[in-house]
């Protein structure tokens, strides 16, 4: 099947701004699905609220567009009730880590088998460019007009600390790597987090004089290095790309199946 067989053409054109990085994430995701030969009927995409979360409308899977921050909680109900389904949860950085922060760390802790894709553009786009937990110090945002004093999270570090058993990071500049990481995440038995840095030229780029979409993608190329690179030692400001965590731990639904066996035996 071609990638376009996985989308709902009826609902295009999409609502993202010109130059938005989220379309690249959509493309990387669909290529991962295609390359793995996954059945559309077995994929449930659960999303929250924000620009990123609209991705669900455009894909020809079972799609559940939920509440701001709560996608992982809905997804937990989907997965535990039917563990054979492949559950993927695309989220924005504010969605996943501000309003949804508690659900995020507990999904990591539980190690329930699903793939969370954090589409990190460091800003609230849909509501007009307010700073997010990922914006970082010194950033200009509509709610930080004098520069941001809110410190940022490191999504991947937090996911690791909270117990996620697969954690990877890349950028939309590295679209093929994104596809590879999403494929590995899909195949992983447990809670997988793939952070993909994405650009918002409309709000983040414009307010922070980072130029257009192409300039912002160029920034991803220049400012990220493969994990373990020597360049990172020389310049700690560089952002690492790669797989940070990949380990086998008991998956929640498999463990619950054992509980059912135990309870049924009495």
């Amino acid at each position: 099947m071609a990638v376009k067989d996985y989308i709902r053409e009826r609902f295009f054109p999409h609502m993202w701004c010109p130059g938005c990085g989220h379309g690249i994430v959509l493309n990387s995701l669909l290529r991962a699905v295609e390359q793995l030969g996954m059945s559309k009927n077995e994929i449930v995409m659960v999303s929250g609220i924000g620009c990123s979360s609209r991705i669900g409308g455009y894909v020809d899977f079972h799609t559940l567009h939920t509440l701001h921050g709560r996608a992982l909680a809905f997804a937990t109900g989907v997965k535990l009730s039917r563990p054979e389904l492949n559950v993927v949860v695309p989220m924005g950085d504010g969605d996943a880590l501000a309003i949804g922060g508690n659900h995020f760390i507990h999904a990591c802790r539980r190690n329930i088998g699903m793939t969370a894709i954090v589409m990190n553009n460091r800003i609230y786009g849909m509501t007009g460019g307010q700073f997010s937990p990922m914006s970082g110090l010194g950033i200009s945002a509509s709610t930080a007009p004098y520069s941001n004093i809110d410190r940022a999270f490191d999504v991947s570090e937090m996911a690791r600390a909270a117990g996620a058993t697969f954690v990877a990071r890349t950028t939309v500049y590295h679209a093929q790597q994104a596809t590879e990481f999403i494929k590995k995440a899909f195949l992983h038995e447990g809670f997988a987090v793939v952070e993909i840095l994405s650009q918002c030229p409309t709000h983040f780029g414009r307010r922070n004089r980072q130029g257009g979409a192409a300039d912002m993608m160029e920034w991803f190329k220049e400012n990220t290095v493969p994990v373990g690179s020597k360049k990172k030692l020389e310049n700690p400001a560089l952002i690492e790309r790669g797989i940070f965590v990949q380990k086998e731990e008991p998956e929640y639904c498999s463990e619950y199946a054992k509980i059912v066996d135990k309870a049924m035996r009495g």
């Binding site: 659960v46 079972h62 559940l64 939920t66 509440l67 709560r70 992982l72 909680a73 809905f74 997804a75 937990t76 109900g77 989907v78 997965k79 535990l80 009730s81 039917r82 389904l85 508690n102 659900h103 507990h106 619950y256 509980i259 059912v260 135990k262 309870a263 049924m264 009495g266």
Partner: peptide
């Protein structure tokens, strides 16, 4: 679990109701 059903204690009430909605969509009484 004695009847093959599922129980989960969530991190709060926000997520509890969200989880049952997700499970309802897969065809279960919740």
């Amino acid at each position: 679990p004695t009847q093959g059903g599922k129980f989960i204690q969530m991190e709060d009430e926000l997520s509890s109701i969200c989880a049952i909605i997700g499970a309802s969509l897969t065809g279960h009484k919740v």
